[in-house]
Amino acid sequence: MDEKDREILDILQQEFPLAARPWAVIAEKTGLSEQEVVDRVGRLKEAGIIRRIGGVFDSRSLGFYSTLCAARVPEGDIDRVAGLINACSGVTHNYLRDDEYNLWFTLTAPSEIEAREYLTTIEEAAGITIVSLPATKVYKIQVTFAMGDEQI
């Protein structure tokens, strides 16, 4: 990654140009050609730095229910249990963490009832107990990563 890549990543995250030819707008801002911007964005995707370019939606505004879940899973059983959890399409994040509750995942579902049904199904199939911690207040959701700023 060079200076121009970082500049492009900041624009792509923070001020994606909503225009018919967005890459041309970025080209103008960065002093590159439209084709160079397309090539660089393609490379950043291939390198796995950009996961996706698209809309980031607010699940609550869409009427969806979401919750953070934690479970205690024996070390040797993690892959099996994670497989069962991950098979649920509403599970978007799942991390192994260094805590007695070692499996942490998020579940988003069209309603609270459906979320509970998913969790019960997972509990029964995996033989685990899940702690569900739905949010009661959101103070911040701002998932952009400043690339040009080396201070963070």
């Binding site: 001020e15 996961r51 996706r52 952009t144």
Partner: peptide, 18 residues
């Protein structure tokens, strides 16, 4: 309308150096 929080790139933060 607040349905979309933003439009743009979603990074794999680990690969981006975080």
């Amino acid at each position: 309308r607040g349905i979309m929080r933003r439009f743009g790139a979603v990074l794999r933060h680990h690969n981006a150096g975080y």
